[in-house]
Design a protein around this nucleic acid. Structure first.
Length: 573
RNA sequence: GACUUAGUAGCUCAGCUGGUAGAGCAACGCCCUUUUAAGGCGUGGGUCCAGGGUUCGAAUCCCUGCUGAGUCACCA
């Protein structure tokens, strides 16, 4: 890499690295560095009365420095937090040679460098538990300056907030913004709590195919790829439902999977093209049982995270204490619009939609219209956890018909803070009904609904062997994490949210520049002057180019001998 | 996909109705042995996102593009 592409601070750090090498210090040593404590342990365990912790070793990143002549303070950040260190010149360098302090620590180390430190713990005059350093080892030199974030009395100064940089360079975000780590630790607690509950119940955690020949189990546009050896298209899964039900057919009474699903659709605050769903299927249960199971699960998760069931989501305090309200979809619509749609036909529903100012088009069936009305008028009002039950049959091709009403299904969604969190059924296990429902979907698809489901004949065949009555539930883990951690963007609960790839400016190779007669050492200078391609260079005015590159030579003290004006003209000829 | 909005130093941001850039932190130099957003004095650092246009003159006005963010649409 040419120094012309580097910022002043990056050049200084690279120079420091060279200086370290000259002193015989390897800034990237290979050997294991054995630590005895984390920062948090020192803070917890140290007792000035006992005067314990008189020989501890820590490792971490330098996050701030306060140098005061012969003594210095710095903050070291490790996996568990930060601790202050105190470095005294004569304690670090007891002999005549003070290089390690004067040169290495004061001049050649920077914020961001990773160091190992050995010493004893004490409390400063101001009352800060600190490590008095006796030995310092460089473990890794940092060549890029970190964003500097300062904090006092809980107030943060110059926070690193640029969302683009935070998501593209999550590693920097994690170093500099400690609250980001917390979100991901909570995410892991959520998953762990759920997994423990399922394991205790004796359910089997399984893995099912991500590459599927038929993308089933949901209605969504899939990502498509190609398998070379088989020469067939394969789809990234949009759901794993049909595979988990095959396992119930196979004789497992309870299976679950934390699964990455992929949907080739729009991205926004609550949608990422790949996202995590937990789906669970339990034999011999129905959706009433599953509602109890779900509310118990969420109560446990909230307790594990917060020690209480009440959670702040934005402005709203949401209480995950079971049991949750249960409301049929028709009753929800009645409650929020005053209209009773029981038994209405297509024309009646269309009129209701018109009256409520809800846009519908001619392809909409009864089910889709009812869903629109609910989505427009009811969903947003469901702040406290509410089970919405008994969805129209058209919307739920994998769900068993309601025991009391064949136009409805035994389905529930759990609404929290105005959004869907869970989706669950008494599963459809009648193979004849299932095939008919798939065929209905085909008709929808022929009518232009590009999200209608594909027919999976192998799944129908599995049902023909007999699946026990089963209830299944799916829950969006990203969304659950958002609720439970108070984040309002899915990007804040994914380490690496999908971003448009960074665009590299087009740059022509050295060879192409050299072919024009430009000496190799001048190529970088020409690029730095703003002419990254031959085409751009050909447009240049020779006089300006000449001045620009000679100016850069002087400014950056490159020590090159300048070309003549005629040389430059010849390049452009 | 549509609309709105933003892109200025390593980071956070000023920069009004056009006159080619500023602050704090970070960096560099000097001083300082218990400081903590350490402090004091001094110095350097910018293709003002890119490309066009208007103008004597553009960070600033206009157009196009790129990349974010927000609303909406889509997401049963």
């Amino acid at each position: 890499m040419s120094t012309l592409e580097l910022s002043e601070q990056e050049i200084i750090r690279r120079n420091s690295l060279e200086e370290l090498n000259k002193l015989g210090i390897n800034a990237y040593p290979a050997a294991e560095y054995k630590t005895t404590h984390f920062s948090s342990e020192i803070k917890q365990e140290f007792d000035p009365e006992k005067n314990n912790l008189q020989e501890v070793t820590i490792a971490g990143r330098i996050m701030s420095r306060r140098i005061m002549g012969k003594a210095s303070f710095a903050e070291i950040q490790d996996a568990e937090g930060r601790i202050q260190i105190y470095i005294n010149r004569d304690d670090l360098c007891p002999g005549e040679d003070k290089t390690l302090y004067n040169t290495v620590f004061k001049k050649l180390l920077d914020i961001g460098d990773i160091v190992g430190l050995k010493g004893y713990v004490f409390v400063t005059k101001v009352g800060e538990t600190s490590l008095h350093v006796k030995e310092l080892t460089i473990l890794s030199k940092s060549l890029k300056p970190l964003p500097i974030v300062k904090e006092k009395d809980g107030k943060t100064y110059d926070a690193f907030t640029d969302s683009e940089l935070r998501y593209r360079q999550r590693y920097v975000d994690l170093i500099v913004n400690p609250q980001v780590k917390e979100v991901f630790e909570k995410r892991r607690t959520i998953i762990k709590t759920m997994r423990e509950m399922f394991d205790n119940a004796g359910y089997l955690e399984v893995e099912t195919p991500i590459l599927q020949p038929i993308p089933g189990g949901a209605a969504a546009r899939p990502f498509i790829t190609h398998h070379n050896a088989l020469d067939i298209p394969l789809y990234m899964r949009i759901a794993n439902e049909l595979y988990l039900k095959r396992l119930i057919v196979g004789g497992y009474d309870g299976v679950y999977e934390f699964a990455k699903d992929f949907r080739n659709e729009g991205m926004d605050r609550t949608h990422n093209p790949e996202f995590t769903v937990m789906e669970i299927y339990v034999a011999y249960k129905d959706y009433n049982w599953m509602m109890e199971f779900t509310e118990t699960m969420l109560e446990k998760v909230a307790m594990a995270l917060h020690g209480q069931t009440k959670v702040m989501i934005g402005e709203n305090e949401v209480d995950f204490k079971a049991p949750y309200r249960r409301l049929s979809m028709i009753d929800a619509i009645k409650e929020h619009t005053g209209i009773d749609i029981t038994g209405m036909d297509v024309a009646g529903l269309r009129k209701v939609c018109d009256d409520l100012n809800i846009e519908v088009d001619d392809t909409f069936g009864k089910g889709k219209m009812i869903d629109e009305i609910f989505g427009e008028k009811c969903e947003g009002h469901m702040i406290q956890p509410t089970f919405i039950t008994d969805y129209p049959v058209e919307m739920s091709p994998l769900c068993k018909k309601h025991r009391d009403n064949p136009e409805l299904t035994e389905r529930f969604e759990l609404m929290v803070n105005g959004k869907e969190l869970c989706n669950a059924y008494t599963e459809l296990n009648d193979p004849i009904d299932q095939l008919e429902r798939f065929q209905e979907q085909m008709k929808l698809s022929e009518n232009g609904d590009d999200e209608a489901m594909f027919i999976d004949m192998d799944f129908v065949r599995a049902l023909e062997y007999g699946m026990p009555p089963t209830s299944g539930m799916g829950i969006g883990i990203d969304r659950l994490t958002m609720f439970m951690t108070g984040q309002d963007s899915i990007q804040d609960v994914l380490f690496f949210p999908q971003m448009r790839p960074e665009k590299k400016a087009q740059v022509d190779s050295d060879e192409l520049f050299v072919e024009l007669g430009i000496a190799t050492e001048w190529v970088e200078v020409v690029r730095k002057a703003g002419y990254k391609t031959i085409a751009a260079l050909k447009e240049a005015k020779p006089g300006k180019l000449f001045q620009d590159i000679c100016g850069l030579n002087k400014k950056h003290k490159l020590g090159l001998s300048n070309p003549s004006q005629d040389d430059v003209k010849n390049w452009l000829a």
